[in-house]
């Protein structure tokens, strides 16, 4: 959107933020308490109802072992939300710290970081993560490690850029003039002012992590059976697409809704921060 006029909307919560937060809250409740939300045990085989189409008993149908798809999707929320949080929380903290310090002090570390950023953006993100998992072996923990090893660079780049802007502003000069130490200037003054875009990017990044995690789950490199994960659920059904489409279609919708929730919330937060300034 172009900035052509002053935003005169009243300073209240906007629909994207409300919808996004609502989706994320529902996801969080499902992830914390799947046993109360899911109608069936997600791992229970029922050989009397294999590949059953959606019905009142099984709203989203059943898979080749008669497991209830809806229950599996709801239980998988826990894993996919974990992927969103666990694979990004390390990079956010480490990346922001490194980026902040490099942005504030500059020098040789700045050159090294910039070169590293150049190289990391050079790789297709997916190929790099797949490459690391190739060596560590498939699995969720290795997925977190692989994403973490790459992802912090993006936060470092963002934090560095923000700090470079903030440290030239008047209030930063004032803080230095008052004789504050670097730690106080960085963590009490610069970082709180630079954190907005980082949090916004974090929301987007969690959506990306779910997309990436489910893609790897689909390829068999992420969550391993019998864990229910949206991408792995889709892979379960790929050979039944022509006869039992429900195994594949519904978990995919879950991914889209989750991604949509994160990006709406991200847009909402960005909007909120922009108007506060």
């Amino acid at each position: 959107m172009t900035v052509d006029t002053v935003d005169r909307r009243p300073n209240r919560l906007q629909p994207p933020l409300i919808f996004g937060t609502a989706i994320l809250t529902l996801m969080l409740i499902t992830a914390l308490l799947p046993q109360f939300v899911a109608p069936y045990d997600p791992t229970r085989f029922d050989y009397h109802a294999t590949l059953a189409p959606p019905s009142l008993a099984h709203l989203f149908g059943t898979d080749m072992y008669g497991r209830d798809i809806l229950s599996r999707i709801l239980w998988a929320t826990r894993i996919d939300l974990q992927i969103a949080v666990f694979s990004t929380v390390g990079p956010v903290i480490v990346g922001t710290l490194i980026g902040t310090l490099v942005g504030y002090y500059g020098g040789f570390a700045d050159i090294v970081l910039n070169r590293l950023v150049d190289v990391v953006v050079t790789f297709p993100f997916l190929v790099l993560v797949i490459g690391i998992i190739a060596i560590l072996g498939p699995g969720l923990t290795n997925l977190y490690i692989a994403i973490g090893l790459v992802d912090w660079v993006f936060f470092a780049r963002l934090a560095r850029a923000e700090i470079l802007v903030q440290r030239r502003l008047d209030y930063a000069h004032a803080a230095r003039g008052l004789g504050y130490g670097p730690a106080r200037i960085i963590f009490r003054h610069l970082l709180p002012n630079a954190i907005g875009p980082i949090i916004t990017y974090w929301m987007t990044d969690m959506a990306l992590a779910i997309l990436l995690g489910s893609s790897l789950g689909y390829l068999g490199l992420g969550a391993q059976p019998p864990l229910a994960e949206w991408g792995a659920l889709i892979a379960d059904g790929k050979n039944f697409m022509a006869t039992a489409w429900w195994i594949t279609v519904f978990p995919g919708i879950a991914i889209v809704v989750a991604g949509f929730g994160f990006s709406l919330a991200g847009d909402g937060v960005a909007d909120l921060l922009r108007r506060r300034e």
Partner: peptide, 21 residues
């Protein structure tokens, strides 16, 4: 916006099933 939340492999599978199979 919705499309950006759609994983490539899922979109591909949908195309493959609906337009292909």
């Amino acid at each position: 916006q919705l499309g950006l939340s759609m994983p490539t492999f899922y979109l591909g599978l949908l195309f493959l099933t609906v337009l292909g199979a």
